[in-house]
Computed example of a mutant assay.
Amino acid sequence: MLFRLLIATLFVALAFFLIRRLRRGKRTKDQLPNAYAETVACHKCGILVPKDEAVEKDGRLYCSEEHSQE
């Protein structure tokens, strides 16, 4: 009886992971999380931010509009 319960639990877990993976689908390069994006350091505080989210002013990159104003 315990063996059947173990097999059933494994089957349900496998089905769960397969369905979850199928629903997620394949990601294109544009859909990758920001962890894979190129990062740049803020000129004022040095924090790393994704390059596409950085604020540029006078040829320098900043993490926020606030830091670009100071």
Rank of each mutant, 00 (worst) to 15 (best):
E38S: 05
D30V: 07
L61P: 05
F3R: 12
T28G: 15
L6W: 10
V49K: 01
A15F: 12
T39H: 08
Q31M: 14
M1E: 10
L61A: 04
R23H: 13
I47M: 01
V55K: 05
L5V: 11
L22C: 02
E53Q: 11
L2C: 09
P50A: 08
A13E: 10
Y36I: 03
G59I: 03
A8S: 12
K29W: 12
G25R: 06
T9K: 01
A13W: 02
F16C: 05
M1Y: 12
R20Y: 10
A35Y: 06
T9L: 09
T39V: 02
F11K: 09
E66S: 13
R21I: 05
I7K: 15
F16E: 02
T9M: 11
L22Y: 10
R24D: 02
G59R: 03
A13R: 09
Q69H: 01
C45I: 11
P50Q: 04
K29D: 12
L6S: 11
F16S: 12
L61R: 10
R60S: 03
T39G: 06
G25Q: 07
R20L: 12
Y36F: 15
V12T: 08
L22G: 06
R4I: 13
H43D: 11
A37M: 07
A35V: 12
L61V: 06
V40G: 06
V12R: 08
E66W: 09
A37I: 04
I47G: 06
R60E: 05
A41M: 10
Q31K: 15
A35W: 06
F3S: 01
E38C: 09
F11M: 14
R60N: 00
E53S: 07
C42Y: 00
F16M: 10
R27D: 08
E56W: 03
F11Q: 07
V55I: 03
F3L: 13
A35P: 00
R20I: 02
C42V: 01
A37F: 05
V49H: 02
L10K: 05
Q69Y: 08
V40T: 08
A37L: 00
Y36D: 13
L61T: 00
Q69G: 06
C63G: 05
A8L: 09
E38W: 00
E66C: 04
E70P: 00
H67N: 05
Q69A: 14
N34I: 01
L14P: 08
D58P: 04
T28A: 14
K26D: 01
I47E: 09
L6D: 03
L61W: 07
N34Q: 13
D30L: 15
T28C: 14
K44S: 04
S64R: 02
Y36T: 03
E56K: 10
N34S: 15
S68K: 00
Q69S: 15
E38F: 06
F16W: 08
E66V: 09
I7M: 15
S64K: 09
H67F: 01
A13T: 04
G46E: 08
L18S: 08
H43Q: 14
R60L: 07
F3K: 10
E70C: 07
K51G: 03
F16Y: 07
L18I: 14
R21Y: 09
I7A: 15
E53A: 05
T28F: 14
K57L: 13
D52N: 01
C45S: 15
Y62Q: 00
D52W: 08
E38D: 11
